[in-house]
């Protein structure tokens, strides 16, 4: 059990800096998700915690130890890889036991730990199988089992669900949550999928181009995005960002699609020329662009009832309390 802290962590490859000084704290037992588009440096950050990448600048500590110079095996962490990285020639049992054997644990101790992990993950019937004889979900569980048996201070997950199909991913998400509730081990989880981040995280670190744009609980990040990047990245469809003016200054007005509601033309705060309707059953997504001199900005509206598209346009209004304002230059949130 341990907390993890990042103090101004940097990473460069030669001249190219890919992580520009990230600072964050992960509390003991917390489940923190690092989320961002590909190439934002999120995996690099995780791999620096694991010790698979050297740390160019700053400090990472796990528990009360600065781990910058420690070998991966000495950091008391376990990692689950995107492609699982199971040893193909070893049985499920041996895959889980391998790290324990290297550490020189007693045979009986190893056996007890492997069997317990297998029980937790419902792998009991597969211990003698080779990884190639398992389904994707089972392999995923073996990869987790390999992490669990080590009883590490922290789990590191590098996009572990992205090789699974959509249905299995939802199921594994639930299993991961249950597992974390049961073990309570500090976890760092990297993903590019904002739904995964929203559903799994106690807190999330939203990364973009090597920087942590925002750190906070999923709902807080969703409700109060710190930058236009976060506003666009978290939530689907993303927050509408409409060039606007406020107090004589140009700003970007941010409104989430579900906060735009249809209204009478007389009350309309804006009118959307409809391009496309996506009826999802529970609600309907309307994609279009703004009519009337606002240079055709694209907007999305989430409606709870079906809409009559034959008119070709939709009058909408929003609650000013749910509007956000951003600086059009830096993208920073303007706090009113």
């Amino acid at each position: 059990m341990a907390e993890i802290s990042f103090r101004n962590v940097r990473k460069s490859y030669g001249e190219l800096e890919v992580v520009h000084g990230v600072s964050a704290e992960v509390a003991d037992g917390e489940f923190v998700v690092i989320v961002g588009p590909s190439g934002c440096g999120k995996s690099t950050l995780l791999r620096m915690v694991a010790g698979l990448e050297t740390i160019t600048g700053g400090e990472i500590s796990i528990g009360d130890r600065v781990v910058n110079l420690l070998e991966p095996k000495d950091r008391d962490i376990a990692m689950v890889f995107q492609n699982y990285a199971l040893y193909p020639h070893m049985s499920v049992y041996d895959n889980m036991a391998y790290g324990l054997r290297i550490r020189g644990l007693a045979r009986s101790d190893i056996d007890a730990r492997v069997r317990r992990a297998a029980e937790i993950l419902e792998l009991g019937g597969f211990l003698e199988r080779k990884p190639r004889e398992l389904s994707g979900g089972q392999r995923q569980r073996v990869a987790m089992g390999r992490a669990i048996v080590r009883e590490p201070a922290a789990f590191l997950f590098d996009e572990p669900l992205s090789n699974l199909d959509a249905k299995l991913r939802v199921q594994m998400r639930a299993e991961l949550q249950a597992l974390h509730r049961r073990l309570g081990t500090t976890s760092l989880f990297v993903t590019h999928d904002q739904v995964e981040a929203m559903t799994l995280a106690h807190r999330m670190i939203v990364m973009n181009a090597g920087r942590a744009e925002q750190i906070g609980s999923p709902l807080d990040v969703y409700a109060n995005p710190a930058t236009t990047f976060v506003a666009g990245f978290i939530g689907s469809p993303p927050m509408n960002l409409i060039p606007s003016e406020r107090g004589g200054r140009p700003v970007l007005l941010g409104v989430r699609p579900e906060h735009l509601e249809p209204c009478a033309e007389s009350e309309a705060m804006m009118t959307v020329d409809i391009d496309l309707l996506e009826p999802l059953g529970s609600d309907t997504l309307v994609y279009g662009h703004l009519a009337g001199g606002r240079d055709g900005t694209r907007v999305a509206v989430r409606l709870h009832e079906s809409v009559d598209a034959r008119t070709g346009h939709l009058a909408v209004r929003y609650d000013p309390a749910k509007a956000h304002f951003f600086d059009p230059q830096g993208g920073q949130r303007i706090v009113s």
């Binding site: 990285a85 391998y98 290297i102």
Partner: peptide, 12 residues
């Protein structure tokens, strides 16, 4: 590559 990395994390 992950196989070698997994082995490294495992302490090999």
């Amino acid at each position: 590559d992950e196989l070698a990395e997994a082995a490294r994390v495992d302490g090999a």
